[in-house]
Design a protein around this nucleic acid. Structure first.
Lengths: 243, 243
DNA sequence: ACATCTTGTTTGGTCATACCAAAAAGGTAA
DNA sequence: TTACCTTTTTGGTATGACCAAACAAGATGT
């Protein structure tokens, strides 16, 4: 193949790379390319698709940005079937740009409060036995970790994570991961303030008790107080003005 | 410049494209590259960064995937300051892969029900005068559009959109856009069923009335019935089994 | 026989050059 | 001014080459 015009390749308006992306995309979702399996080498792909390496590399780059493959220098790209975590990861990079100012952080945090308020309401109304057991266990872990800030942080996240699992909708745990990673710069401050551990544990305890009593309003209020207090602490720590 | 080793370029382990991405990213968020302004031509960028066009193109491709620039064949990439819609757009491509089966669609739809339930609760509890006015206007538009399915769809989306604006958190309208676009294949069926228009309008009316009466439980219930009925309609239309 | 060293191959990352087609810009004739 | 033609610009693609790290296999020393 020497020269190519838009008419002879059949790719009327689009870019050649896009059709390669589409083809590989289809092979991945259809399972023809198994999860975690390596993609063919670039030089094989260019033969397979009858195109140049330029196009292949651009296609792989796009797939990588879509989160469908993971690339490392000098390694074949590895297929990665998309899941909800992939979506969050794809968003992550862009989200960072929205958190440069306090307003962005506050918006994200408020959305978290919004979500968790509804979560604890639903938990109070409909948590199953297994959920209650999980919550109790998470709270107990949390209590034991009070002396160790590092460990307390972990169990804190885990406790909230149980709430996100109660709806049995995989979207929610993914959202939880997003919140914890995107807001981590703020929470890191909490890590260095061991005196907050006990307060936060008591808040968690209040939330669970309201859930146990099947009192959605109390659960929502306890959760709200908990998260508002955390925000207040972060606000003061970072010396942000009133808002 | 002839040959480059990892030591002489200073990019010890990374790929050259990544530093170009980072540099352009910084220029975009810092405002040095204004919004909607065209990026320099690829041939200028390669001079500016002292690298080959291959690297520049890969960098632009990455920026495009991040949603920071918009590319069209034969046009200079256009800078696009990231906003919440950008994030959703970045997610969108990946989300599609999660909606291939009914379970994925149901998960997404259920998350929407979850969000809107909480939205109407908050609306009932704290909607401001302006919000009420907007809701009434949206409902009136909705009523007038009953005979025209195309128009009804638009006003339907608009009515729900008002709910997403009430918290005055730009994240929510973005989420609304996500839901409407990602679930559009299902809603399109609704478009072709004009007999549903009146039912849906009545549901909207019930929601607004509950909000006017400041009754969060009634508002939540009306909203839930509305969305559950819509799902039921879609489920039957697509001839999906019970779930 | 085993661990270690050497060597050739594979593979992704980069560079350089060239050509095409469409868009934009500029110029010319009516 | 308007309509038509030419040149330049710009992104998309092809091709061929080279590098460095990873890999695989054989050679070597103990």
């Amino acid at each position: 193949m020497q020269n190519r015009t838009s008419t002879e390749t059949g790719n009327e308006k689009g870019r050649a790379a896009d059709s390669v992306v589409a083809a590989l995309e289809a092979q991945i979702v259809s399972g023809k390319l198994e999860n975690l399996a390596p993609l063919p080498a670039e030089r094989d792909l260019m033969e397979q698709f009858g195109t140049s390496r330029t196009v292949i590399r651009e296609a792989i780059s796009k797939l990588s940005s879509l989160g469908l493959v993971e690339t490392r220098p000098r390694f074949r790209p590895v297929v990665r079937k998309p899941d909800y975590a992939t979506v969050l990861h794809a968003c992550g990079n862009v989200v960072q740009h929205l958190l440069t100012d306090r307003k962005g952080i506050k918006n994200l945090y408020n959305s978290r409060v919004f979500v968790e308020r509804a979560l604890v309401r639903d938990a109070a109304l409909g948590a199953k036995k297994e959920d209650i057991i999980e919550l109790k266990a998470a709270l107990e872990d949390n209590r034991r970790a009070i002396p160790d800030s590092q460990e307390f942080y972990r169990t804190d996240v885990a406790f909230h994570g149980v709430l996100y699992r109660i709806p049995r909708n995989p979207i929610f745990p993914a959202i939880h991961e997003g919140y914890t990673s995107w807001l981590s710069p703020q929470w890191d401050q909490m890590l260095r303030s061991p005196e907050r551990n006990e307060v936060n544990y008591i808040a968690h305890k209040a939330i669970l008790e309201a859930i146990l009593e099947r009192d959605p309003a109390a659960a929502e209020e306890a959760l709200t107080n908990h998260l508002k207090a955390a925000w207040e602490f972060v606000r003061v720590t970072f010396d942000w003005g009133d808002e």
